[in-house]
């Protein structure tokens, strides 16, 4: 059996394992929980104030009503929580270890390198954003007054998972680029900056920027499309596109990662 073919149950087993270690590690720093909670609430408050300012002057923004935009803000916060608690810490560590040549111990393990590289770090306090975002989405749904059924809820969760996967794959490719290029840190910073644009539906941006945020940096699929689902605005075409895009990114990013491993040169001996 090849080590680089870890089955899905195996991956789940390993994820739980590392989640536990991550939790053990983080529980040593309890103060971080309160700091994180403050940060989340502050960021949320800023977002709400901006929304209030916008709707002081208009009743809708690019065809999105106030509660619908609130849902976008909720999904944005929630996805940000997923990114900062799992995706970003793992990908930053991966990139750093590629650069320093300290990926050795990971590659020695009899498991899939990509799976291991993707689950080693968990920032559980950052997951506060997932809760806060979830509450905001729920509040938006309440304000939408019953236009969200089970189907919408299910497709919302499905598209959320697809969205997180596209962001993960995108970031994996950024990190794997480190096998070829030396300095990728700035590019990661750039992504964090671009992600802020996701606080609003990509539809409100001009065409060229919308294209960038959809295909170059897959923000549209990470935030806007799930938000469409939970607000009853989803078009079937977009869901299919999200599915296709995710599948393609999964395959391509895996390929890129494995090509990169062949180039891995380790720390200078």
């Amino acid at each position: 059996m090849r080590a680089d073919r870890t089955s899905a149950p195996d991956a789940a087993r390993l994820t739980v394992l590392f989640l536990r270690i991550g939790a053990l590690n983080e529980l040593q720093y309890r103060a971080n929980f309160f700091i994180q909670l403050m940060q989340s609430l502050l960021a949320l408050a800023t977002g709400l104030v901006v929304l209030a300012l916008v709707f002081d002057r208009t009743d809708e923004l690019g065809g999105w009503s106030r509660p619908q935009l609130l849902a976008v803000l909720g999904v944005f916060t929630l996805m940000g929580g997923i990114i900062r608690s799992v995706i970003q810490p793992n990908m930053q560590r991966l990139l750093e270890e590629i650069r320093l040549g300290t990926l050795d111990y990971l590659l020695l393990k009899p498991e899939d390198g990509q799976v291991l590289a993707s689950i080693r770090e968990v920032r559980i306090w950052q997951a506060v954003d997932i809760l806060v975002g979830g509450v905001v989405v729920a509040a938006a749904v309440v304000q939408l007054e019953g236009r969200v059924g089970w189907l919408e809820a299910a497709s919302f969760l499905g598209l959320l998972a697809l969205g997180a996967t596209t962001i993960y794959c995108f970031w994996l490719m950024l990190a794997a680029a480190g096998f070829w290029l030396v300095r990728m840190d700035e590019v990661q910073e750039l992504f964090t900056g671009i992600y802020r644009a996701g606080a609003y539906p990509v539809g409100i941006y001009p065409g060229w920027l919308r294209a960038v945020l959809t295909f170059l940096v897959p923000l549209a699929f990470a935030v806007t499309v799930p938000a469409e689902a939970v607000t009853g605005r989803l078009e079937q075409g977009n869901a299919a596109l999200a599915l296709g895009m995710t599948a393609a990114l999964v395959l391509v990013s895996r390929r890129v990662f494995r090509m990169g491993l062949r180039r891995y040169s380790g720390a200078s001996a």
Binding site: A3, L108, E111
Partner: peptide, 20 residues
């Protein structure tokens, strides 16, 4: 990187750390 092999070998590097 076959699992059957990796389970049977080890590499220890002085001055490197793999523990949490």
């Amino acid at each position: 990187r076959e699992r059957a092999l990796l389970r049977q070998l080890t590499l220890v590097m002085g001055n490197r750390n793999q523990l949490q």
